[in-house]
């Protein structure tokens, strides 16, 4: 185990292309418009990775951008949506045209598949989504089983082991001990299930900072293979409490995403700039407001007893 004074597992974002190989399965953390590892998504696109089998529970701009950039070879998901900004046009186009092979999980099924792997089980049973057409589509994932004691009919979900999990944390130290304050979504389950784990984070900190806030550590370092500092690394999705989702950038994305020429341009811009260049271009003069959106969000005062 490296000491906090060495770089330990810390590597630059630019090395991500060497840590993830073409054709591998990669679980991407975050959910809704919250905390997707977007700096990593952009870097995989810059590195020209292809054939990636992406796994997401509730994906959004992360999956659609990779679909647009030709990064994906397969998509496993329980939901992908741009919410207020519409359906995800490039994922949609890929599936409707048959060019993007996919696996649609039920939400709980996907999480339980990850949990099974994380616990070293070949599968886990649960009181499943009876009546849903999804399980019958995927006999290699879902099966019917019975409780050995009562005979009750249950749904079995096969363990799901991604080659890599990429999750975005608030902070991590050189050992890979990673902390979240707001939304962690499926990040921990994905990391526990994957063969290799890459943590991107808003900042790399000394071990002392982790120890002082030990109750916020959701992923202990022994799971983690690489730590990458990526400020605004979830942008344009949120990383609460640091910054809210950038709805304005998402609106621009959604406007481009439906038009093949415009989205090709959008992808080319990302491909041809560094992550630092991206921050400079998209966040200049706006980063403080994205943070202030978190501060401005209101609880309805006086409502609680």
């Amino acid at each position: 185990m490296s000491s906090s004074r060495t770089n330990g597992k810390v590597v630059p974002l630019e090395s991500l292309g060497e840590l993830v190989r073409d054709g591998e399965s990669v679980a991407f953390g975050g959910g809704w418009f919250a905390n997707h590892p977007m700096a990593a998504v952009r870097q995989l696109i810059r590195a020209g990775r292809t054939g990636i089998h992406a796994i997401t529970v509730v994906g959004s701009v992360d999956m659609d951008l990779m679909a647009a950039a030709g990064t994906l070879g397969h998509l496993s998901f329980s939901m992908v949506t741009l919410e207020a900004f519409g359906l995800a046009p490039n994922v949609r186009r890929g599936i409707e045209s048959g060019s993007l092979p996919f696996t649609e999980y039920t939400g709980l099924g996907l999480l339980i598949g990850l949990e099974a792997q994380g616990r070293g089980m070949p599968y886990l049973p649960y009181r499943g989504p009876f009546g849903s057409d999804i399980p019958a589509r995927y006999p290699e994932i879902y099966a019917t089983t019975n409780c050995p004691f009562t005979g009750e009919q249950l749904t079995a979900v096969r363990a799901l082991q991604p080659d890599v999990a990429i999750v975005h944390a608030l902070r991590a130290d050189a050992e890979g001990n990673a902390q979240w304050d707001g939304t962690s979504g499926p990040d921990v389950e994905m990391a526990k299930a994957a063969k290799r784990v890459i943590v991107t984070c808003e900042e790399v900190v000394d071990r002392r900072v982790i120890v002082e806030n030990a109750h916020m550590t959701k992923l202990p370092g022994y799971y983690v293979d690489a730590v990458i500092e990526a400020p605004f690394g979830a942008h344009p999705t949120s990383h609460v409490p640091r910054y809210a989702m950038d709805a304005w950038e998402l609106m621009d994305y959604a406007a481009a995403a439906g038009d093949p020429e415009a989205i090709a341009e959008y992808v080319a811009r990302i491909r041809n700039e560094t992550e630092e260049g991206y921050r400079e271009r998209v966040l200049k003069g706006r980063d403080k407001v994205l943070g202030a959106l978190v501060d401005a969000a209101e609880v309805i005062e006086g409502a609680q007893a």
Binding site: A84, G185, V299
Partner: peptide, 22 residues
């Protein structure tokens, strides 16, 4: 209070616990 950019942040402000999906 509802807002597109603030719903998530406000949810945490008055909450008693933080979990994850699983």
């Amino acid at each position: 209070q509802l807002s597109f950019t603030g719903a998530e942040a406000s949810a945490y402000k008055g909450a008693v616990c933080r979990w994850g999906m699983l």
